[in-house]
């Protein structure tokens, strides 16, 4: 049996990596990927809490989270595609110059 705290530790480190990624990159796709890492770390924490407390509500929360994340990714990626089509570039620092 693995110490449940280890899972939370991994989750925290993963969250740190995700935050670093989201702060340091300006490419939209890379930021999206970093956000997905954040999501994975949150999911891992949620799962380890659920597994620890054996509470059935945690399950539903995880199910909902995975489902919604899938939907959200669809929208974000298609936004990125739209941006790319308009500007030929996916640098977020340039987006504020977008007009029309």
């Amino acid at each position: 049996m693995i110490n449940p705290y280890l899972y939370l530790l991994i989750s925290s480190v993963l969250f740190g990596i995700g935050v670093y990624g989201i702060l340091s990159k300006r490419n939209m796709i890379r930021m999206l990927l970093s956000a997905e890492i954040l999501f994975n770390s949150a999911l891992l924490a949620l799962v380890s809490f659920t597994s620890y407390t054996k509470n059935v509500y945690g399950y539903f929360l995880v199910f909902l989270a995975v489902g919604i994340a899938a939907a959200e990714v669809g929208v974000l990626v298609s936004l990125a595609i739209l941006l790319y089509r308009r500007r030929g570039d996916i640098d977020v620092m340039e987006v504020d110059k977008l007009k029309g």
Binding site: L8, S12, F15, G16, Y20, G21
Partner: peptide, 13 residues
């Protein structure tokens, strides 16, 4: 950014 990330990770842990 690295420091911020590491700090958040530490705080969470």
């Amino acid at each position: 950014d690295l420091l911020i990330g590491a700090g958040i990770a530490g705080l969470l842990a």
